[in-house]
């Protein structure tokens, strides 16, 4: 197999999905982020965003905290150490693959 293709094919598929890449990118810039902010900046629907969050939670890349602010339920998300290293690794791998491609 060509080396550049191999580089692309070995990318972490959990991170590579565009919506999940956006979620992790945002979370990596903060200590904690509320669902509402992610909904606004990603432009994703609640359902779509929730399913991507669940996928990232299953992979251990983020932690979800549900709580009440007054009487209103709220959700807060935090990137985990493995999420941070997966995002870093993904970017490095992608850069290498792009460089090989020229």
């Amino acid at each position: 197999m060509r080396a550049d293709l191999e580089g692309f094919l070995s990318l972490d598929r959990v991170v590579h999905e565009p919506a999940r890449l956006v979620i992790l990118t945002v979370l990596a810039q903060a200590e904690e982020v509320e669902f509402r902010f992610l909904e606004r900046v990603s432009g994703l629907t609640k359902g779509n965003l929730s399913s991507h969050i669940s996928r990232l939670e299953e992979a251990g890349y983020l932690a979800v905290k549900k709580f009440f602010r007054g009487k209103l339920p709220a959700t807060s998300l935090k990137i985990t150490r493995s999420g941070r290293s997966a995002l870093k690794g993904y970017r490095e791998q992608l850069n290498r693959a792009l460089q090989r491609r020229g």
């Binding site: 692309f8 565009p18 890449l21 956006v22 990118t25 810039q29 900046v41 693959a97």
Partner: peptide, 24 residues
Amino acid sequence: AIGEHFQPSLKELSELEKLTRAYG
């Protein structure tokens, strides 16, 4: 594209990072 045309570009991701930091 980063690699494919449906991926967010590096520039867009960097904008998103800046926006999150500024809001935070």
